[in-house]
Design a protein around this nucleic acid. Sequence first.
DNA 1: CCATATACCTGGCAGC
DNA 2: TGCTGCCAGGTATATG
Length: 271
Amino acid sequence: MPELPEVEVTRQSFAHRIAGARILSLRMGKPLRWPLGVDPQALAQRQVQAVRRRGKYLLVDLDEGLLLIHLGMSGSLNFAPVQGPSGPHDHMDLVTSQGVLRLHDPRRFGAVVWAHSQDAPEAVKLLGHLGVEPLGDAFDLHAFQAGLKRRRSPIKQVLLAGDVVVGVGNIYASEALFLAGIRPTTQAAKLSGPRIAKLHAAIRDVLTRAVAKGGSSLRDFVSAEGNTGYFQLEAAVYGRKGLSCRVCATPVKQIMQGQRSTFFCPTCQKY
DNA sequence: CCATATACCTGGCAGC
DNA sequence: TGCTGCCAGGTATATG
């Protein structure tokens, strides 16, 4: 479910409502990807200051320390005024003076990790190697080009790796490459300058539009307000194997790259 | 340093 | 209806 747009939409949906709240208690359910790393009781009385995003991680800043939350493949957050009955897939309830932040994550690839600061080892392990934010000013074309030049892997896999640019997941990688007219199998280092410029713009474009539309409607995405996402400009290629390309009517192809599905139009994506 | 495979876990769906 | 196998939005980690 969650790539950068879904995580950002989630953040926006509850950040302003939880800011300033006091933590009353924290209940953890089944184990997630990593242990919390602190006694939940130690978080009582901490105050939430802000909710930021780094790549696909949400950073809940406290007056002392921070919580790093990742939604994995199937996670979603809900922020409700009161704590309702929890189901078998609700694995975190952060009860605050202003509402309850609940993590719902059937597959439990998600994580909630406490760190004393963003420079603490637990945080650096998760965030330290991340690439540039694609929607920020630091997403510079020349730096992007330099990053791609050193990679011999297929461009699709370089985008997914997240150490050149963060936030582009399996759906938006296929979508951005379609917009840029790039074959997903092309080695990153072999892309021309102009193609990289198109890709740079395409990544910003597709992610920005997806955020504006409230995330993708694929499967089960819901924001913390409970709204189902909707991607009004439907996917151009993702999930459309065998269907006609929306631009040229050629059937969309599906291939596997690094155990992940990739979709592309063999006519529109030749470079 | 880079590239690739693996592991984690559950639910939904196609096919029989 | 029920079973089996495959697939799914991510990414740290191990291995070459």
